[in-house]
């Protein structure tokens, strides 16, 4: 077991209540730097709620989420305002139902992702309107970076098409590229393989692995496709009814009786036992 010091994200005692409903109950886990951590669980287990807490869309009822930068800085995510989680703590995310700017071009989508840096370059608009301060250079650099990402996700020839015109798989890849344009230290992916065909799913795996290798970004992903989880992840956290039921290496999770019962289904020989229990 490695120490906490190389954890990029530490979640401690995270609890989220909506009125009487406890969506996440006393959850603690950590994502190590350079790892791909998978968060799995049956539908309604609270996985997306955990994501929304980490990325600032919900304010958790209890708990602490610490994000450590490579240089050593620390941010308490539950205390940051929503937009600062991306801009200062460098946590990016994608959404379960894709949220692209569909009426803007693919390239514009990637430039919006570099908003804060460009905003500074344009002298918070004043210099940009007056045409002073070398905004053009920064914009060209931003386009360069966007082109590099488009090339990596295979969308360079569609750069000037509206994002809403892209096929589903391409929209998923564009959303990942857009999140990566914010230079995150932690990228949270909410079901990235949902709705992809086997080939697209395989390409996605390659892309995610290259993000980890080349960009040094740690990944946290929610996924239902077990083949993706088993192939990619270094570490798996299993949630059921908002509570963590298992946490470990993929092989350990695969053989964990609790996980099998809750998520992957029960063993064949136990079927009769379970049926008797529920009274079929």
């Amino acid at each position: 077991m490695r120490s906490d010091a190389d954890a990029v994200l530490t979640v401690e005692h995270l609890t989220m209540r909506f009125g009487g409903l406890v969506a996440v109950n006393d959850l603690s886990f950590l994502c190590r730097r350079g790892d791909i951590t998978a968060l799995i669980g049956p539908n309604g287990a609270g996985k997306t709620t955990v994501f929304n807490c980490i990325t600032g869309f919900y304010r958790p009822t209890e708990g602490m989420m610490t994000l450590r930068q490579p240089e050593g800085g620390e941010f308490l995510l539950e205390r940051l305002p929503g937009h600062a989680i991306n801009w200062r703590a460098k946590v990016a995310r994608t959404f379960q139902n894709i949220r692209l700017f569909s009426g803007m071009t693919v390239l514009e989508n990637l430039l919006v992702a570099q908003h804060n840096r460009l905003m500074r370059a344009s002298g918070f608009t004043v210099g940009g309107v007056l045409g002073i301060g070398g905004y053009g250079r920064s914009e060209r650099a931003a386009i360069e970076k966007a082109s590099a990402w488009l090339e990596r996700v295979g969308l360079l020839d569609r750069a000037d098409d509206p994002a809403g015109d892209l096929p589903y798989g391409a929209q998923r890849r564009l959303e990942i590229a857009r999140a990566m344009c914010t230079d995150p230290v932690l990228l949270c992916l909410d079901e990235p393989a949902a709705g992809l065909n086997p080939r697209e799913s395989h390409e996605l795996n390659t892309l995610l692995l290259s993000i980890r290798e080349r960009d040094g970004t740690s990944l946290l992903l929610i996924e239902h496709d077990m083949s993706v989880v088993m192939e990619l992840s270094d570490h798996v956290v299993v949630l059921d009814y908002g509570t963590k039921i298992a946490d470990g290496l993929p092989e350990e999770i695969r053989n964990d009786a609790k996980v099998i019962a809750a998520y992957l289904g029960v063993e064949d020989e136990e079927v009769e036992e379970v049926e008797a229990e529920v009274g079929v």
Binding site: H83, A92, R93, F95, F101, V112, R178
Partner: peptide, 16 residues
């Protein structure tokens, strides 16, 4: 324009 298209996505990209 991004705000007009999707406010939640804007926030996730660090736009105030």
């Amino acid at each position: 324009e991004a705000l007009r298209e999707d406010e939640i996505a804007c926030r996730s990209l660090g736009i105030n």
